[in-house]
Structures are given as structure tokens and as C-alpha cells.
Simulated scan of single mutants.
Amino acid sequence: MIKNNIKNIRQRILLATERCQRDPTEVSVLAVSKTKTTTDIKQAIAAGQDFFGENYIQEGVKKIQFLDNPSLTWHFIGSVQSNKIRLVAKYFDWCQSVNSVNCANRLNYQRISFQKPLNILIQININNEPTKSGVSLKELLVLAEHISQLPYLKLRGLMAIPALKETYCRQLKIYQKMSEAFQELQNVYTSVDTLSLGTSHDMEAAIIAGSTMVRIGSAIFGSRGQE
């Protein structure tokens, strides 16, 4: 099932990129593996999947340690709690949910002993929803400038989790705002190359707007748990 699901996701990406005349290789798939077993993850690996995203730090660390596979790339996509920052810095390759100077400083400090910088995406609260984490677009450039000065972090781009809208057109409009912010950031920082936007439910609109990474959980692993 997982193998076929990954094949279907790649087909959806192909069709979406054809609609907007993009190269399908510009869009990578992050398999959201939270609440999934290592058996599920191994099936995805066998189907060629090598990017995985975890929301819960202790669960993610256990999987990383158990699988012990250097060819895999692990993204932390959950809320970065202050008492778990050391684990994010130690075990993950990317952190997609940086939303403050303090968070960036602490990740940088904890990453000192590693040769490779931790790849960073700034989380944007595109609709300024009070229940969601992330910085506003007005705060973006200040935080990006700060991160760019930290030696053990590498600014790679933006991430957002916009609320699903009633229509495709409304969804696309929100995603285009993210794409514009991403392009502005690319004009300033040569390291910026990743816009993490879109899930199982709305990946087509995200890709057409310019997403370079879609976060796919249920469409790969099934509906057990939440994306």
C-alpha cells in the first residue's frame, strides 16, 4: 500500500507541475511519519523515500536511533519546546519550525559540536491565526537576518501551515503570498532554496504557487494518526 501511495503522490506532483510548467524534480516529498511505525517507514524507504518529518521529538529520536540510516534526512516539523531544543539540534538535519530569535539562538548553541550546520526554515503564520505558531510576514526579514549570522545554522527558506479554505482559488491566493515572500528572501540570501508548503489535501495549489517541498502524511501512510 505505501509503495503504491508514494507512486500516486509522484504522479500528482507530475500532473501539478505540468499545469504550471515546472520541472517535477523541483518538488520534493517530505513523508510525515509521526505516529507511524518503523515498519511503515521501512516500507517507504524501500519505495525510494528518504526525507521524513517528525512532530514529536522523543518519538522522532527513537526512530532515528532505531533505523540508524545515514542516507535518510530527518526534518523536525513540530513546535520547538525549549526543553527539547538540544535533541532537535543533536538528532535532526532540518528544523522547519523556527519562529523566534531565542529559538534560533538556542538551536545554534546546541549545534556547536556538529560539523554540519542545522538547516532552518522559518515558520510563517500567513493568516495571523492566534492558535498557530509562526512569525508574521512583517517580522520575517528581521528574523532571517539574525539566523543568517549564526554560524551553526543555515537558512534554507520558509514553512507554513495555512488553514484549508473553502475554494481552490482562495487557497491558491494564500499560497501565492507565501511564494512572494520566499522569492524576496531568495533575492537576499543565496542559501534559500526551500518553500515547505502543501499537504495531502492541498498539494496541487501549493505546487502551482511555487512550493518546493510538500509534507505528505495520510496520502502515504493512511489515515491512522493525523498529518
Rank of each mutant, 00 (worst) to 15 (best):
K34S: 09
T35V: 11
T35M: 12
T38E: 15
T38V: 14
D40C: 06
I41R: 08
K42L: 10
K42G: 10
I45V: 04
I45C: 13
A47I: 03
G48P: 08
Q49Y: 08
D50R: 13
D50E: 12
D50M: 00
D50L: 10
F51R: 14
F52E: 09
F52L: 13
E54A: 04
E54P: 09
N55Y: 07
N55F: 12
I57F: 04
Q58F: 10
Q58E: 15
E59F: 01
E59G: 06
E59P: 02
E59M: 04
E59D: 15
G60M: 09
G60K: 05
Q65T: 07
F66P: 08
F66W: 14
D68Q: 14
N69M: 10
P70R: 14
P70K: 12
L72H: 06
W74C: 02
W74R: 07
W74P: 08
H75W: 10
G78M: 11
S79I: 06
V80K: 05
V80W: 13
Q81M: 14
S82R: 08
N83M: 05
N83S: 03
N83Q: 04
N83Y: 01
I85Y: 14
R86Q: 10
V88Y: 04
A89C: 15
A89P: 14
K90M: 08
Y91A: 01
F92G: 10
D93C: 10
W94F: 13
N99P: 02
N99A: 13
V101L: 15
N102I: 09
N102T: 01
N102A: 09
A104F: 00
N105I: 11
L107E: 08
L107K: 04
N108M: 10
R111F: 07
Q115T: 00
Q115E: 10
P117R: 03
P117A: 07
P117W: 03
P117N: 06
P117S: 01
L118K: 12
L118S: 00
I122Q: 09
Q123A: 00
N127Y: 11
N128D: 15
E129S: 00
E129A: 14
T131F: 07
K132M: 13
G134E: 08
L137A: 07
L137N: 06
K138F: 07
K138Q: 10
E139H: 10
E139F: 14
L140A: 11
V142L: 15
V142P: 14
L143G: 03
L143K: 00
S148D: 09
S148M: 00
S148F: 12
Y152G: 12
R156P: 14
R156D: 11
G157D: 06
G157C: 11
G157E: 03
L158G: 00
A160Y: 11
A160W: 12
